[in-house]
Nucleic acid binder design. Sequence first.
DNA 1: ACGCCTATCTATACGATGTATAGAACGGAG
DNA 2: CTCCGTTCTATACATCGTATAGATAGGCGT
Lengths: 194, 194
Amino acid sequence: MKRPYHHGDLPAALLRAAGEILRSEGLPALTLRAVARRAGVSHMAPAPHFGDLSGLLSELAAIGYGLFNDTLRQAQDHPGHRSVPTATAHAYVAFARTEPAMFLLMFRSERLDFGRPALAAAAAEATRLLMRSLPANASKPDVPSPATLGRAVGQWSVVHGFAMLLIDGRLDGILAAPECDGDVDRLLDLALAS
Amino acid sequence: MKRPYHHGDLPAALLRAAGEILRSEGLPALTLRAVARRAGVSHMAPAPHFGDLSGLLSELAAIGYGLFNDTLRQAQDHPGHRSVPTATAHAYVAFARTEPAMFLLMFRSERLDFGRPALAAAAAEATRLLMRSLPANASKPDVPSPATLGRAVGQWSVVHGFAMLLIDGRLDGILAAPECDGDVDRLLDLALAS
DNA sequence: ACGCCTATCTATACGATGTATAGAACGGAG
DNA sequence: CTCCGTTCTATACATCGTATAGATAGGCGT
């Protein structure tokens, strides 16, 4: 049962290990050496595939954006009883709640390299999906009116800020209030209604 | 010109050095050893005063919240041509733009210890100021109506999300568009108008 | 005035991390 | 079959946070 010298598909195995560590132990535990340990290789094995740490984190974040985009797409295709923008907002917050560490990794650009094609494409697709959920400018869809632009940025900002504050525990006190009774979706609806 | 063995007021000197490093070199450069180096003491000198790293970061964040609260207060007392909530929003974003590293430190609770009285008090005062900028519930100011609660959380979320996305560079593409022409305040006004 | 006691600061050590480098093992091209 | 580049290992180094032990100084009781 000796592992062969060449792994076969080490990049995929490393990304899988990184994802597991990120989910189970959080962002601070996501180190290069820990990933290599979990994948059962030496701590310098990732180098030929990902370069340095930011390389691995960026590829992992690209995968995260892929899942994120899937979530947004599904919410927009099947908004249920909600409007499309509201459904998108709930999907956004739900992703941040389900995968908080991944969400933080994705929106913490300091350790990420957006020069990587995979990450750049996935992140661009995410913003495209977020902008799509808004009523387009009829005359020229490529050049949105200031009002449309403001609505897009405003919508994104509310949802992103809500998710960030929520993950950071800043809304815990408010969530405990009897008005929402710990119901995050209800509080989000209240916030969106303003 | 030999420095005495006992510094005199090492805690203040360390916090000053930490603030300088944070401003000039950013959050990742803010290490315990770097702070001690800049203050001219051994790297274990901070321990008796701040305990571990999170202690020093928390006290520095408390100072940051103090400046932040001053900014908010001044905007609310002298809103100028803007409404009080809008002036508060602009002050919020202006602080994040002027001191991005400090802003990130303050809203990155993972390395902070909110058990520290100074930090807990300063952060609580910040949320109080943010909630104050909204029309209070006339009948029972302590128990806000759901609509008021929603408006408070919504307002905070937009502004926080806008600031976070801005600092992270996520709005750079939109800012370059001709509608706002790089004017952050204008884009914020558009976002708030939605 | 004197001696101890505690807080403060230094020196040293240890494990962990990211990265650079050199060398070993493999796989495919000629 | 040989060579060569890719992949992986082994080792080394600087840096970080922290634990521990020892040096220094200021304050307090006597």
